[in-house]
Amino acid sequence: MDMKMTWGEVEVRRVVELEAPFLPAAALVPGVPAERWRENEDWLAPDFWDPGSGRVMAAVQTWVLRSEGRTVLVDTGVGNGRVRPGAPHFENLDTDFLDRLAAAGVRPEDVDVVVNTHLHADHVGWNTRERDGEWVPSFPNATYLMPSADHAHFGPRGADEESRDPVLADSVAPVDRAGRTLLWSGTHRIDAHLTLEAAPGHTPGSSVLRLASGGDRAVFVGDLLHTPVQILEPAHSSCLCEDPRQAAETRVRILGRAADERELVVPAHFRGAGAAEVRRAGGRFAISRWAA
């Protein structure tokens, strides 16, 4: 499903790399009671959950923002031809992602800024592509914004370590060597409408991107949410979070501000409408509406 909207003066478009069943719900967010899935089946299925297999349905996608005359990509997916031990669903993909970007009016050389909300494999893959046997930046004129805490945590500390970590070798280190990386911490303003903010827990450097333009507000939350059930049960982090307690605290904080300020919440992996408005519901949250 494509999505193209204009929020204030910013054009927002989604480009999907892949959609597929992911982990079983009980494995992805083990703290969530099984009945929470069943009692919300009428709207979780089929976009977010497959009742038959019990698996969470997910998308890997890039958000394309056109703001102040520049093109900004938020996360870059898995990429083609990657070696991903332990993640067979990401191994050796061969998708037409760059063609899909082109269909959205984005040529690689036209990208000005790439935002990696964090440095997991499914958020940095198309940072690079293979050319003549080497990995080079896919977007040669872009500044790649990477959280400094994640770069320190995951980043290359020498040739030996880089060679042991294929994500570093093919998706991060080549950008560093090309001089295209800009590391940031705390907050980082991209332009008058877009600001990055630290949101740790899922990884040490996980971040959110806030959009504020005219009367419109949105927050791109990366992997703060893997499933809408975490909006209903924000205390429960995914099995992929490095610090589950900190991730839960960050989730409650970000969702609380989104509810209070009527920010659309835009997670990295939601299928369907892809973005939702949330409201407070006691000590938890609920979905007020999905993006049109």
Rank of each mutant, 00 (worst) to 15 (best):
71 T>D: 10
157 R>V: 13
85 P>G: 13
251 R>F: 01
177 R>L: 10
66 R>E: 15
22 F>C: 05
270 F>I: 01
272 G>N: 03
55 R>F: 00
195 T>R: 12
227 T>Q: 04
219 V>W: 02
172 V>T: 10
15 V>I: 06
4 K>V: 12
98 L>I: 07
109 E>I: 07
189 R>L: 11
256 G>Q: 03
218 A>G: 09
152 A>N: 13
71 T>V: 15
59 A>Q: 10
191 D>E: 09
166 P>C: 05
189 R>Q: 15
268 A>R: 06
125 G>K: 04
44 L>W: 02
269 H>R: 12
239 C>D: 15
192 A>Y: 02
138 S>A: 11
213 S>Y: 10
80 N>F: 00
103 A>S: 13
245 R>A: 13
28 L>S: 07
241 C>Q: 13
147 P>A: 15
123 H>D: 12
121 A>I: 15
266 V>P: 03
3 M>F: 01
193 H>R: 12
90 F>Q: 07
7 W>I: 06
214 G>Y: 03
61 Q>F: 00
280 R>E: 14
286 A>Y: 00
225 L>Q: 04
110 D>I: 04
123 H>G: 07
285 F>Q: 06
67 S>V: 11
98 L>S: 02
95 T>L: 05
233 E>F: 01
137 P>C: 04
119 L>P: 02
190 I>P: 01
191 D>Q: 13
2 D>K: 01
101 L>M: 02
272 G>Y: 02
278 V>R: 05
74 V>N: 04
270 F>W: 03
242 E>A: 14
268 A>M: 08
62 T>P: 01
291 A>I: 13
123 H>E: 09
231 I>M: 10
173 A>Y: 12
8 G>A: 03
91 E>F: 06
175 V>G: 03
181 T>K: 14
49 W>A: 00
100 R>S: 09
181 T>N: 14
255 L>C: 01
253 R>Y: 10
47 D>P: 08
197 E>Y: 08
147 P>W: 06
16 V>K: 01
35 E>M: 08
178 A>K: 08
84 R>D: 06
160 D>P: 04
